[in-house]
Amino acid sequence: MHTIASWRRLLAEFLGTALLVTAVVGSGIMASRLSPNDVGLQLLENSVATAFALSALILTFGPISGAHFNPVVSAADWFLGRRTGTGLPGRDLAGYAAAQTTGAIAGSVLANLMFDLAPVTFASKERSAGNLWLGEIVATAGLLLLIFALGRSGRAAVAPAAVGAYIGAAYWFTSSTSFANPAVTIGRAFTDTFAGIAPASVPGFVIAQLAGLLIGVGLLLAFYPDAGRSADDIVVAHPIDQAAHRP
């Protein structure tokens, strides 16, 4: 098991998720100001910024916490690794989810403040429809397949670029613009801007993401029955904290 102190890993998950949501929300605000009459261009600007930011954040925080930034990734990591003693320990799962969710809310607040908006402006954009929920199921299951397939095949080193590319692409090929993350979904309810989602729409998205989690894990077990053996490499392999072994 990894020996990096728990508080360091939780701080990394909090800060990484916060900065991810700051990038999502902030780039959405900037896009709507720079291209006020072109929604397609706004989405392009938002998706490119998000993809680049996510890749950079995985590189930054991956060696500390694994850079999950997402409760469904943490839950899948715990579930797949529980039989082999790898991956995220069960005792840390709730802590990761809490750090990710509070970080996501903080990220929206930070983005609002940077663009001279009220710290909390609850979103009014309704995103509630069956086709959007289907998009979230597809986006979430695909994300899990990508992440764990990379770990299982020994290619975790390319995860930052691959995950960033997937999320950037999924903005465009899913009807929901690929939230694929319960924590980020909750955080985006705290900003009434381009990237916002009305609080009333959050439960439907989260339920769809949990369905994507179940489908994604099921497919992983079908394709890679021993996927749990590489759970320690999700998203980026955690190094052993050498200081913990010094006399």
Results as ranks from 00 to 15, higher is better:
Ile4Arg: 14
Asp232Tyr: 02
Asp116Leu: 13
Val24Asp: 00
Ser55Asp: 08
Thr50Val: 07
His245Lys: 13
Gly142Glu: 09
Ala159Leu: 04
Pro36Ser: 12
Ala208Tyr: 01
Thr140Asn: 03
Leu57Phe: 00
Ala23Gly: 15
His68Lys: 11
Thr193Asn: 12
Ala5Ile: 07
Gly154Cys: 11
Arg9Met: 13
Leu80Asp: 08
Asn181Leu: 05
Val184Lys: 06
Ala5Cys: 10
Glu136Trp: 02
Ala183Val: 06
Leu144Lys: 03
Ile4Thr: 15
Gly66Ala: 12
Ile58Arg: 03
Ala31Leu: 00
Leu150Gln: 10
Ala106Lys: 02
Phe61Pro: 08
Ala99Asn: 09
Arg91Asp: 11
Ser176Glu: 12
Lys125Trp: 02
Leu150His: 04
Ala99Ile: 00
Ile64Trp: 00
Leu20Glu: 00
Ala98Lys: 02
Leu113Arg: 12
Ala23Gln: 02
Ala31Asn: 00
Gly85Asn: 10
Ile105Lys: 00
Thr102Leu: 15
Arg33Tyr: 01
Tyr96Asn: 08
Ala180Pro: 09
Glu126Ile: 11
Ala139Ser: 13
Pro225Ser: 01
Ser27Lys: 05
Thr84Leu: 04
Leu11Pro: 10
Phe61Ser: 13
Ala156Val: 01
Ser32Lys: 05
Pro160Thr: 09
Leu145Glu: 04
Thr177Trp: 07
Leu44Asn: 05
Pro36Val: 00
Tyr224Glu: 13
Glu13Tyr: 06
Pro225Ala: 06
Ala12Met: 09
Ser6Leu: 14
Glu136Ile: 05
Arg188His: 01
Ile29Tyr: 04
Val72Phe: 02
Arg127Cys: 02
Ala189Glu: 02
Leu214Ser: 13
Phe223Thr: 15
Thr86Met: 08
Val158Thr: 14
Arg83Pro: 04
Ser47Leu: 00
Thr84Glu: 14
Gly168Thr: 03
Ala162Ile: 09
Arg83Asp: 15
Ser47Gln: 03
Ile186Asp: 07
Pro203Lys: 08
Trp172Asp: 03
Val109Ser: 01
Ala183Asp: 05
Ala231Phe: 04
Gly26Trp: 04
Val184Pro: 07
Thr101His: 06
Phe52Met: 14
Leu221Ser: 00
Ile58Ala: 03
Ile207Gly: 08
Asp92Val: 00
Leu143Gly: 08
Ala165Glu: 09
Trp133Thr: 06
Ile186Met: 14
Gly216Cys: 07
Phe223Glu: 12
Ala31Gln: 08
Ala18Phe: 02
Leu93Trp: 05
Thr86His: 13
Pro239Ala: 07
Glu13Thr: 01
Asn70Ala: 09
Ser153Met: 11
Arg9Cys: 12
Met1Ala: 15
Asp92Gln: 15
Asp38Gly: 09
Gly40Gln: 10
Phe122Ala: 13
